[in-house]
Amino acid sequence: MPSSTGSSSAAGTFIDTADVYSRGVSEEIVGRWLAARPGARDRVVIATKGRFPMGDGPNDAGLTRTHLSRALEASLRRLGVETVDLYQAHAWDPLTPIEETLGFFDDAVRAGKIRYVGVSNFVGWQLQKAALLTQLRGLAPIVTLQPQYNLLVRDIEFELVDVCRNERIGILPWSPLAGGWLTGKYARDHAPIGATRLGEDPGRGMEAYGPRNAQERTWHILDAVRQVADERGVSMSQVALAWVAARPAVTSVILGARTVEQLDDNLGAADLRLSEKETALLTEASTPIVADYPYGAPGVAQRARTLP
């Protein structure tokens, strides 16, 4: 998470993007920002990703050597840099042997085009297989996993967190505020409206809002976050971010603020340290429910185990 000493001097050192974000526009914006600030390149960590379609051709997507070599070169050009600090597979590719992907990453590291390798949106067996292959073949190791992780979505704790801790892989959670839910801006049984992630697209908004609104667990978690926030005199966003930033194996948090005001508020979480009591309250309220074996007793729905 970016360090912060107040909204007037808040700063971050980790910038995460991807080629597919607005078809390269996000990387171009980062590139222009870097170009306008001499010396900034040495003070920040630049991370980007490749995997998803950037064109209509057969080689314009996937984790093949052909696509990734083109994707990486294009990302370097848009970012205006010679080396990407962290290059990530944006998701698993079932059509490409992972050995081919890992071989490309290793070659790119040796060529000085990327410094470290990461993955995003992998499930447990995929991450474990990839990690073991890098060890067995002497390839550049996987150093980060970027998954969805927040108080409302804790499913990575079933297997992925254990893999990361065992293989010394850092976790970079995306959507730490669950698409805005953990900010407290959505109300029970009231369709989202206005300038919110869900309110600006009524059709998509209701499709995403309805299932989560119907779960009593959602509102139980939000009540717990609001309780801690009110008692500490901080925003719900800061509480939710502080909780996820302190989880085992988490090394940074991917913020996705829509306004400067939101960013200023989010950066305040860097200075917030939750007490053991507050952490326990949030962890207990958000403990996921598992339906069956192997995470629960066969045929019996129960609360999942929680990490320390």
Rank of each mutant, 00 (worst) to 15 (best):
W33Q: 04
Q126N: 05
A229W: 06
Y87F: 15
E231L: 10
F104L: 15
V25Q: 15
T66R: 13
N59P: 10
A229N: 03
I193T: 15
P38A: 14
T17W: 14
P94Q: 09
R204W: 14
D19S: 13
W243Q: 02
I221K: 04
R23G: 03
D42R: 13
A131P: 05
A208K: 15
I171C: 02
L95G: 09
A297P: 08
Q227Y: 10
V239H: 04
G12S: 13
Q128P: 06
V117N: 05
H220R: 14
G112F: 01
V225A: 02
L139T: 00
R273L: 12
A40Q: 10
R41H: 09
E73S: 15
S9V: 14
A242G: 12
P97Y: 05
K129L: 15
T259N: 12
A214K: 07
A224S: 14
V300S: 08
G50Q: 01
S175H: 03
L86A: 03
T279R: 15
T96F: 11
S120E: 05
A291N: 13
D292W: 09
A40E: 13
I142F: 07
P94K: 12
G50D: 00
V225F: 01
K113G: 02
I171S: 01
D106T: 11
I114K: 00
H67E: 00
D85G: 01
Y293I: 10
A195E: 09
A191D: 12
L255N: 09
H90Q: 10
G31N: 03
I46F: 00
S9T: 14
Q135D: 15
V253Y: 11
V234W: 11
V253H: 09
R247E: 00
S26L: 07
A111G: 07
L272P: 06
G184H: 10
A74N: 03
G55F: 11
A285C: 02
M236S: 15
L255Y: 11
I221N: 03
T287S: 13
I98T: 12
D42F: 02
A214Y: 03
A47K: 08
T279S: 10
K49M: 02
A71W: 05
F158K: 01
A91H: 13
D16Y: 02
E276N: 10
A89V: 01
V20F: 00
T101S: 11
H90L: 05
L281Q: 05
L172E: 08
G112W: 01
T66F: 11
P38N: 08
V225G: 00
E216V: 15
L263S: 06
D155M: 07
A245V: 03
R78V: 04
R37I: 03
G180I: 00
A108D: 01
G194I: 08
S8H: 01
T134E: 02
A40C: 04
L72D: 00
A10N: 13
L86I: 13
R32W: 12
T183R: 15
G268T: 03
F14P: 05
